[in-house]
Write a protein that binds this DNA or RNA. Sequence first.
DNA 1: ATGAGTGCAAATAGTTTGCAAGCTG
DNA 2: CAGCTTGCAAACTATTTGCACTCAT
Lengths: 133, 133
Amino acid sequence: MKTKALRITNPRLAMLRVLSECKNPISAEEIHKLAGDGTLDLVTVYRNLDSLEEAGVVQRHPIERGKNLYALVSPDHHHHHVICRRCGLIEKLPGCDTIKLEIAAKNQGFTDLTHIMEIYGICPRCSSNPSHE
Amino acid sequence: MKTKALRITNPRLAMLRVLSECKNPISAEEIHKLAGDGTLDLVTVYRNLDSLEEAGVVQRHPIERGKNLYALVSPDHHHHHVICRRCGLIEKLPGCDTIKLEIAAKNQGFTDLTHIMEIYGICPRCSSNPSHE
DNA sequence: ATGAGTGCAAATAGTTTGCAAGCTG
DNA sequence: CAGCTTGCAAACTATTTGCACTCAT
């Protein structure tokens, strides 16, 4: 799992444990809270999220302005999510369609392609419940 | 252009002018700088980006951690971009493939769908130039 | 032993909120 | 005139940086 010259350390193991236990993307803050045996620093979480993202182990999901969630890259199949604009509910979507666009990007000479993508909407519960929080 | 009960004010006109002159997405800060005849406040830019995004006039493009760029929604065709991870170069990509995913989301009961998506890579110039800044 | 990784403290960057005053419809 | 908008000041949140120390290799 750590094939990219990344050292195996307690903070990293803790983070990966937390990430592997969450089926939905979570924030750095949450990782810190959950993995935190008290000694793990939030700064370390951020730094490791960087390295792990670069190593292709985690995937970043930008949500609302200035926030990001992280999740392990699904070993089997890459996917994305729908996020409810009102209540924040996150659901998985099957597969990913971006191949065409990546090919277009490759044709423009870009290499080493990755992408981020999120779909937003109003979830069933929220749309049936007119309370506009 | 402002069909959604949004008032026509100088700040908004200035912002729309700037946005319409930029073919690539730009940041709130840049809009502020460019539209700023000195009186326009950055806060107003943010507030109007919110209203305009909600009104469907502008589109938000989340890039690196915690940053967002904005662009007018192309009246003709919706599209996305490739962004060079190294130098930040942004290029347009033709069209958008997300329909399948949006259908999947709709099937899960979500309504009012929108999405964000960006592709990252290394641009031709950067990959031929090994200086790893 | 040596440098990647960590914790702590402090700094940034981007964005949001409260409130009184201004301007649009 | 009423209420959407704005400016200003200040608060926040998420993230980054510097530095000395530690631990994996």
